[in-house]
Design a protein around this nucleic acid. Structure first.
Lengths: 143, 143
DNA sequence: CTCCCTGCAAACATTTTGCATATCA
DNA sequence: TGATATGCAAAATGTTTGCAGGGAG
């Protein structure tokens, strides 16, 4: 889990400025366990930086996505969500109850994908594996 | 691969009417190998049924999705795409070259998902596995 | 001090709703 | 024939662009 300071250093060393707007979006994504859409990031970001504009949210999300600090979360429910990206993209679990996005161990997946590719004749260049279910925290809260 | 006739029978037996608009959308999805967004379905559908309206495209896609005859295709490129659905949803491959969407054999996936659930404490209720790559047809055309 | 980045407003694109009419069963 | 589904128009929603001013380096 990268700190916000480490993230700002990535922005700076890529030649971009570290601004109030960008910091606000970074902090919102860092604090939120669940994935958020642009509107939610805007609302939460205004609590940190009241002058934040919608436009900067979109532009910042593009920037962060390009730098690998954020990523899209797709799916039936939240098609336009964004979450911070710390690890290799492509695998995550979304809790249907609390909306939290978490990574999961993916040992063995690449081997399985290789065999799928061989069977189907498809050259696999990338994948998106998203699980939906209930996280351990929400399971406990039902007791 | 269900025929359009079989699909219309599913619509009819679910208590819905088989209309020109719904037929046009069905035929567009049946003819298109790749996933299409609402605008593309509208354009192509008008060639079949010129009086087709945008609204009916949206409403028909909702209906077909509910009946399991169509499904959303998400992903970085085409986040709002729709494709016909013939088999259990959740697994498909998208060709980065021609845009074709195809199913792939998913033997062993459920076992793997079970082990992921056990390791992570996550109760897995559904999954979305989307592979991106090059289909065998497009590989051949490079030769 | 300079240029990048911002926020506002407006343009633009996409999806949903209201309602009178057409059409399927 | 009667209820469902349609298409138009307009509203609502979500995203992008133009531009003058502000803030990071």
């Amino acid at each position: 889990m990268r700190t916000v300071e480490e993230q700002t250093e990535i922005i700076r060393s890529a030649g971009y400025r570290v601004t109030q707007s960008r910091l606000a979006v970074l902090q919102v994504l860092a604090q939120a366990a669940e994935s958020l859409d642009a509107a939610a990031i805007y609302d939460l970001g205004r609590q940190i930086h009241p002058r934040l504009g919608r436009v900067s949210v979109y532009r910042t999300l593009d920037l962060l996505t390009g730098l690998g600090l954020a990523r899209h979360v797709h799916g039936e429910g939240n098609c336009h969500g964004y979450a911070r990206a710390d690890r290799p993209e492509g695998h995550y679990m979304i809790c249907q109850d609390c909306g939290q996005v978490q990574e999961f161990p993916c040992a063995g997946l690449d081997d399985w994908l290789d065999s799928i590719g061989r069977q189907s004749g498809f050259v696999i260049r990338g994948h998106l594996l998203q699980l939906e279910g209930v996280c351990s925290g929400c399971q406990n809260s039902y007791q």
